[in-house]
């Protein structure tokens, strides 16, 4: 089964990473490249006379093939990494509780993974356009990782605990990082238009939701198939 765990994760990661990369090229990377125009100063939104105005429009993907190939490669690596963690959790839940794994149940696992790994940290630390000044790296990484773990444990308690008290504890655990609050600067420094930053957040989260759904679906599919 350890071989099944690994191969299921690799296949699911390969499929989800490729789909996610394709979606990012269609929806996310053009916004990211538009953000870089403000990062480099090629485009200015906040002018010294108090006016805020700039032309809307992405520069397009351009011909930087090396850069874009790397984006595909690292998407596959990231999604395979997340898939390995996900299949470990799915396999463990099956072994402990006798859960039936399938493509359909995998979809729910994938969506819960999206909530824990993408959505919950983004509530406190929104996905950032390049060039967005932010608080010190280390505290943000600690908050990010703690939020992922707290949300994953909280969701597991809600899904698998046998008493309501533990389920309530799970809910509190999910809220806890947000009650503590993510590390932020006490000044706004953003150079990009607020509309562009907001669109980048919603597009990247939306596409990640699809990526995680695809990953969970195929992780469940390959895990259940390998048991026949």
């Amino acid at each position: 089964m350890s071989k099944n765990l690994l191969s299921s994760a690799v296949f699911a990661g390969l499929i989800a990473g490729s789909v996610a990369a394709l979606l990012q090229f269609l929806f996310v990377i053009p916004l990211l490249l538009e953000g870089e125009l403000y990062e480099t100063g090629a485009r200015l939104h906040f002018l010294s006379d108090g006016m805020t105005q700039s032309e809307k429009g992405t520069p397009g993907l351009g011909g930087e093939w090396d850069r874009h190939i790397m984006t595909v490669v690292f998407n596959v690596i990231s999604y395979t990494g997340y898939a390995l963690v996900l299949v470990a959790a799915m396999g463990f839940a099956k072994a402990q509780r006798g859960l039936e794994l399938s493509a359909n149940s995998g979809l729910i696992w994938g969506l819960c993974g999206f909530i824990a790994v993408q959505l919950a940290p983004a509530v406190g630390l929104p996905p950032e356009l390049p060039g967005t000044p932010a608080a010190e790296l280390a505290p943000r990484q600690v908050w990010w990782l703690s939020t992922i773990i707290a949300t994953a444990v909280g969701l597991s308690l809600i899904a698998f605990a046998r008493t309501g008290l533990w389920q309530i504890a799970g809910g509190i655990l999910i809220l806890l990082p947000h009650l503590i609050g993510a590390p932020h600067l006490d000044t706004y420094f953003g150079v990009a238009p607020p509309e562009l930053s907001a669109e980048f957040v919603t597009q990247s989260l939306g596409m990640a939701a699809i990526g995680w759904s695809v990953m969970g679906y195929f992780a469940g599919y390959f895990l259940s198939r390998s048991e026949d």
Binding site: G81, Y82, V85, E227
Partner: peptide, 25 residues
């Protein structure tokens, strides 16, 4: 072989996964 998964298999998958994420992220 397929119905008995040692605890080690989960730890292995988890460790390799986290290692990949450390590199990519």
């Amino acid at each position: 072989a397929t119905t008995r998964t040692g605890f080690g298999a989960y730890v292995l998958a988890l460790t390799v996964g986290v290692a990949l994420l450390t590199v990519s992220g």
